[in-house]
């Protein structure tokens, strides 16, 4: 099949690669750009493991084509933090045991990131609904809630220090 050039901004960097036009954004990120932190749990838009941020908003990368990302800004889990400099959400998920097998975790962290941006002071009842687009089979979610609450504290700290 004829390939096309796809250009997009990923984690703040201009990236381009050639792929078949039918290539999903998830497969493009994983296969063509080597960003394998984006996981595929169902490939039909239910489980949320493949969640990325598209221009800052969560999107299912399994349901999008790479060409649809052309010209847009994509943030994957690798763009949020690194092992050397983990994002507060990453630290909080570990601290509160918000993961077991870790397969859903990158997608969950990106959804939680969007949730906390809109709700810097999380409410557990609201969170139950707002985070229900990501499925975790291991944790029973309880410690994910705790992790998101802990991340909110960690993320508020620098501001508190400044004020």
């Amino acid at each position: 099949m004829k390939e096309v050039e796809v250009r997009l901004t990923v984690n703040g960097r201009e990236r381009s690669a050639r792929c078949e036009p039918r290539t999903t954004l998830a497969d493009f990120l994983r296969g063509h750009l080597g960003l394998t932190g984006t996981h595929l749990g169902c490939e039909h838009g239910v489980c949320g493991a493949c969640t990325v941020l598209l221009d800052g908003a969560t999107a299912r990368s399994c349901l999008m084509l790479a060409v649809q990302g052309q010209g847009h800004e994509v943030t994957t889990i690798e763009g949020l933090g690194t092992p050397e400099n983990p994002h507060p959400l990453m630290r909080a998920f570990s601290e509160m045991h918000g993961l077991q097998c870790g397969f859903c975790t990158p997608g969950f962290i990106l959804s939680a990131h969007e949730y906390l941006r809109e709700n810097p002071r999380p409410d557990r009842q609201a969170m139950r609904k707002d985070l229900s687009g990501n499925i975790c089979r291991c944790t029973g979610y309880v410690k994910i809630f705790a992790a998101v609450e802990r991340a909110a504290e960690l993320m508020a700290e620098p501001e508190a220090a400044r004020s």
């Binding site: 994983r30 394998t36 932190g37 690798e78 630290r91 570990s94 045991h97 993961l99 870790g102 990158p106």
Partner: peptide
């Protein structure tokens, strides 16, 4: 807190598809 978490939370783990 778990020793195994850092690669998993940062998306640097290696599952079979990776």
């Amino acid at each position: 807190a778990r020793k195994e978490d850092l690669p998993l939370v940062t998306g640097t783990g290696t599952y079979v598809p990776d």
